[in-house]
């Protein structure tokens, strides 16, 4: 997956994207460029269009106008969610969404990279290598002890990690992570930041987050969204000094 990075200039490229809901411009002429292997944090006040942006990238919502290009050549607006997931974009929801009535192990098995065809899943048999891969990820997210527990019995933080594990095992080239630290304890937040930094060694990662401490811990390039377009972009310490950003956050 990482080898591919050398060939492409940008993993994700948004240009002039606009989306209107009943006259309300959720996304307004948005431009964004994510390099291969980059870890990017996106911040912005409520209603800045962060989730809509995620929806557009993952094919849940179609933009009114604008380009959404994956790996320099693939037009994402022509594909649906399942296609885009199989192309190599993984998404983690704001609210932890795991399959509650399946075990932790089964959740990972389901997300495991592989054929998604109906009949192939009907006659699917897990290979030794695949089973190892699942156990590996189980170890990475620190849940080996709970492999046979139902996902609904996990704690909130554990569910977040399981979902991140499901993302990784999907072997995407680009990960979209929506507010991973929401509702976590300080310790869990720092652990999550470490986990994401770790992941970003092999993947491109886009993180949407509110928590400034978390962003600081990520130590990455930051994009500030406001009213559906990019307000500022750069290192966190630079962005934080930007007068417009201060205005937007403090509400003038």
């Amino acid at each position: 997956m990482t080898q591919a990075h050398s060939a492409v200039k940008s993993i994700l490229y948004l240009n002039g994207v606009t989306k209107t809901f009943d006259g309300f411009k959720a996304i307004n002429n948005l431009c964004l460029d994510i390099r291969p292997g980059e870890l990017r944090a996106i911040i912005g006040p409520n209603g800045a269009g962060k989730t809509t942006m995620m929806d557009i990238i993952t094919g849940k919502t179609k933009p009114d106008v604008g380009e959404v290009v994956f790996r320099d050549s693939i037009d994402l607006t022509q594909h649906d969610e399942a296609d885009i997931a199989n192309l190599g974009i993984g998404r983690k929801f704001q609210k932890p969404t795991v399959i509650e009535s399946l075990s932790v192990w089964e959740n990972l098995e389901l997300a495991l990279a592989g054929k998604r065809n109906v009949f192939q899943t009907l006659f699917f048999r897990l290979t030794q290598a695949q089973a190892h891969r699942v156990d590996e990820i189980l170890a990475l997210i620190g849940l080996p002890a709970r492999r046979d527990d139902l996902a609904r019995n996990l704690s909130h933080g554990q569910k977040q990690w399981l979902e991140i594990g499901m993302l990784i095992i999907q072997a995407p080239q680009l990960l979209l992570v929506d507010e991973p630290a929401a509702g976590m304890t300080d310790y869990e937040t720092m652990e999550t930041a470490k986990l994401l930094k770790n992941i970003s060694k092999d993947h491109s990662v886009v993180v949407v987050e509110h928590d400034m401490e978390f962003i600081r811990a990520l130590d990455s390039r930051v994009t500030v969204l406001h009213e559906g377009s990019v307000l500022a972009e750069g290192r966190l310490d630079v962005v934080q000094k930007d007068q417009r950003v201060i205005d937007v956050y403090l509400g003038r």
């Binding site: 809901f21 009943d22 309300f24 849940k60 919502t61």
Partner: peptide
Amino acid sequence: ALKGRFVE
């Protein structure tokens, strides 16, 4: 139809 993100 009501449109918007919230109806999804």
